[in-house]
Design a protein around this nucleic acid. Structure first.
Lengths: 265, 265
DNA sequence: TCACATTTGTCCGTATGTATG
DNA sequence: TCATACATACGGACAAATGTG
């Protein structure tokens, strides 16, 4: 295989393997840690070659060879990139370009929230901050999308609410439907980052709630009603009304979060 | 040192070192990869002990000992956690609890944007998406904060704009002042996540712009004016006007991004 | 300034688990 | 079932960075 020019630099500064223990390695002052350098090299390799998610990357042995570094350094670099979802490692199969999803953002935000909940004076501070950001975002998104929704999209939204009601009456929780509703609502924007960001906040909220053993929505009927109010307002082209319904929806979530954190938790 | 209960599990399932090459390791079916398990253990250790950012963590040798795993596995796990800014590793000194900042979010978003810019049909698609999210967020934040700003805070905002004007007239770019303005603007909310999120978007935008070799704001005078318009509107308690000024500000950024991506870039 | 101990960084060699064909 | 290719994990050794006496 032939690697691009950027992949050759590190091997050049290590001409003979025999000199490893005799010379001071002669490392360029710019590149401090081998592992960090490998991270940059692999990332650059993906960008230079315009590799898409799922495309195969060089094996560990090939990276060792072309970069002139040990397996350990390669593995540590790949582990770090895996944590960022920049690469995906499949045991016994190979290494591939990752999805570059917001998974690391979710992981980091979850850790943050759990770590700072019992900390100092803040109680539900971290979680409330996430909720506020999500609310502000959705409020603004709603204003943008209110006039753009077609009848077909409104019908699909209503169908989701119907399924919510059905699930609620059957006593089944419907977190996925809630998520689907908000995702569908902002689809007309054509912004792929929006549903991912909202999904990230949603996942963090659920994970933190799960750790604390909260129940799944104590009042599903109310939740269904909030969503239906949104659709009704949107059908009537009532931007303010839709925004108000969304605000009411969030007020319910906040109340629940505040209540449960003080309660049995 | 004494480690909490959660740190003991892995060593228990490896009673004798001699059996390493004779028995099939007898690993619990739940926990597939040793490295991933160590990540969870260390994260849980931080949460259980309520360690704050900067607090010292067990050394690699101590983790090997208490978890009954090899140094390589410990290092790979710590490298992954370092990428998420959950731990911080200092060469020759020790390992510490990280800041849990949005650095991994910035890294991931930057990679995403660079990887998808020359991809397929989308040109400035990814960057435009980030700008739109930031605009929607700031629009909503502005509405919330408009009535809450004190005279002192408005004066500080105006002082930042004055420094912008000064820098602009001197021909110096003022990206940091721009950032400071937006940070100061939403300070009354008391939401620590807000400035970090906006800062993340801001950093991604600058990094991507830097890679493409864009210039620093071709029309600084206009940028200064936009910011002053915001302060003036806020002073007059004109929420709509402030929002409009903010929208104009973003329209300028978008135009610049679209223009430069088609130009010499 | 100079050792010195401690801790992380990198390397090597080997054995094992896992997926594909 | 078998063989191959690959990632996973182990142990030991030395290099490099940092803090301390």
């Amino acid at each position: 295989m032939s690697l691009p020019r950027t992949m050759r630099r590190m091997s050049e500064r290590r001409a003979s393997d025999d000199s490893r223990n005799t010379l001071p390695a002669a490392r360029s002052p710019r590149e401090r840690r081998v592992s960090s350098q490998i991270q940059r090299e692999v990332t650059q390799l993906i960008l230079d070659r315009r590799l898409r998610a799922g495309a195969p990357l060089p094996t560990e042995a090939e990276l060792m060879e072309s970069l002139g570094v040990s397996r350990n350094s390669v593995r540590e670099a790949l582990k770090a990139l895996q944590a960022l979802d920049i690469v995906e490692i499949r045991h016994g199969y190979g290494t591939y370009v990752g999805q570059a999803s917001l998974t690391p953002f979710v992981d980091g935000l979850t850790f943050r929230t759990l770590a700072r909940q019992a900390d100092d004076t803040d109680d539900t501070g971290a979680l409330a901050e996430i909720l506020q950001v999500r609310e502000v975002l959705e409020e603004g998104l709603m204003r943008r999308v209110a006039g753009e929704l077609s009848d077909g999209e409104l019908a699909r939204l209503e169908a989701v609410v119907d399924r919510m009601e059905e699930a609620g009456l059957a006593g089944r929780p419907f977190p996925e439907l809630d998520r689907e509703f908000h995702e569908l609502l902002y689809a007309p924007l054509g912004n792929a980052l929006v549903p991912q960001l909202l999904g990230a906040f949603w996942t963090v909220f659920r994970r933190v709630s799960g750790v604390r053993g909260w129940t799944d929505d104590p009042a599903p009927a109310v939740t269904v009603r909030r969503h239906r109010d949104i659709v009704v307002a949107l059908r009537a082209h009532d931007v303010e009304g839709a925004q108000q319904a969304m605000a009411d929806h969030f007020r319910g979530i906040e109340a629940r979060a505040a209540q449960e954190s003080r309660g049995v938790g």
